[in-house]
């Protein structure tokens, strides 16, 4: 049966909730644990409306991005938003690093941490960028990149496609990071002390 009988919800509702309530994304190009299937289910307009109505009851809102979905909380307190921003902060340097690679890493890209580490090793500018990324204490570049990949996989921006070859794929949710970066407006603080960066979400 595709739908649960009580609420006429898709039977995967539980799986969807389990993923998104953790703060993770559901991307259309994710293959692990049937993520693409879940995406298709949410993306179905009928399902979407039902799911949205259902989750709204428990004060969750499904947000639709470019080929990905995630939860936001209705009336989210500012403290939560701040936490989100703090979480996001670390990604600025990572995205900067990814965008500076010879072969820019974008949605759908497949790569191995060793490749990035090697490129960083060969390019001083990239190496500095990598070393600048905070929160990681790994000694070798390779391990640092691995930790970044781990973090991004946990946050569902990457997917470990092949454990044997340690090959990662960039998921559509990566667009979320790019969208946020693009939404940051930087003001020159020379003019007024009051001006500050504004983040649109």
């Amino acid at each position: 049966m595709e739908e649960t009988t009580n609420y006429n919800l898709p039977k995967q509702t539980h799986d969807i909730f389990a993923v998104m309530a953790r703060g993770n994304f559901i991307s259309s190009n994710g293959t692990r644990d049937g993520m693409n299937r879940l995406y298709d289910i949410i993306n179905n307009p009928e399902n979407f409306d039902r799911l949205q109505a259902y989750f709204n009851v428990i004060r969750y809102n499904i947000e639709r991005g470019n080929n990905y979905f995630y939860f936001s909380r209705l009336n989210e307190p500012n403290s939560e938003l701040e936490k989100k921003l703090e979480r996001f902060e670390r990604y600025i340097d990572i995205i900067d690093l990814f965008a500076s690679m010879d072969n820019k890493i974008g949605v759908g890209s497949r790569f191995r941490p060793t490749e990035i580490a090697e490129e960083c090793n060969a390019n001083v500018r990239l190496k500095q960028k990598l070393q600048k990324i905070p929160l990681y204490r790994s000694e070798t570049l390779h391990n640092k990149v691995r930790e970044i990949c781990d973090l991004m996989s946990r946050d569902s921006f990457l997917e470990l496609e092949d454990e044997k070859s340690e090959s990662y794929k960039v998921l559509d949710s990566y667009n979320y990071l790019l969208d946020i970066i693009n939404a940051i407006a930087i003001y020159d603080d020379a003019g007024s002390e009051d001006t500050q960066g504004i983040v649109y979400n």
Partner: peptide, 23 residues
């Protein structure tokens, strides 16, 4: 970017062989 995004939609061993390495 388009090629990566397109190839990324498929499994690594998809039968169309739509695979592209990052490098």
């Amino acid at each position: 970017r388009y090629v990566n995004e397109f190839a990324g939609k498929y499994r690594l061993e998809n039968h169309f062989n739509f695979v592209i390495r990052n490098d």
